[in-house]
């Protein structure tokens, strides 16, 4: 029973984030915004984590900077722009639409549209077609193949 509870708790657990108490802002509204911004920014040291999740020292620095900018009165967009100006588009986990990223954004829809087009203009499947009655020639072939069965 106890094991099951522990297991259930583990299933329910979500990433807690790497934010340490000392980094948090006193203002809960600002802290919520900081957390939201942090989950959009990629840690450049570990690359596949957000700065909110990562324990890397550089991720910590960026979390602190995000909070400093918010305290200085920046809007969410301005905070992201501040980090983007220094580390490039790479830090944005949601890449902006540009010539370089067009295939990323349009690709799946293009494949879907192509598949839809192919399905729509393909001839109907054999199962849906009306069954044709056997011709005399077909009957003769059936008789030849099953002759001994039919005689019985």
């Amino acid at each position: 029973m106890k094991h099951r509870l522990v297991f259930a708790a583990l299933l329910l657990a979500t990433a807690a984030g790497a934010v340490e108490p000392g980094e948090q802002l006193a203002d809960p509204a600002l802290e919520t915004r900081a957390r939201a911004i942090s989950t959009e920014l990629r840690c450049v040291q570990c690359q596949n984590q957000t700065i909110d999740e990562s324990n890397a020292p550089l991720a910590r620095d960026l979390r602190v900077i995000v909070r400093e900018r918010l305290l200085a009165g920046d809007s969410d967009e301005e905070v992201v722009a501040f980090v983007q100006a220094r580390y490039g588009d790479f830090v944005l986990l949601k890449p902006p639409f540009s010539a370089e990223t067009a295939i990323l954004w349009i690709g799946p829809f293009a494949v879907l549209a192509l598949a839809g087009y192919w399905l729509a203009r393909r001839p109907r499947s054999a199962a849906a077609a009306e069954p044709q009655p056997l011709t005399a020639e077909d009957e003769a072939q059936v008789d030849a193949a099953l002759g001994h069965v039919r005689k019985d």
Binding site: Q45, P57, L58, D61, I65, R86, G88
Partner: peptide, 13 residues
């Protein structure tokens, strides 16, 4: 020591 100039330069490591 704080790495702030590094952030200005976009240093990743």
């Amino acid at each position: 020591p704080s790495g702030r100039a590094g952030v200005e330069l976009g240093v990743t490591g």
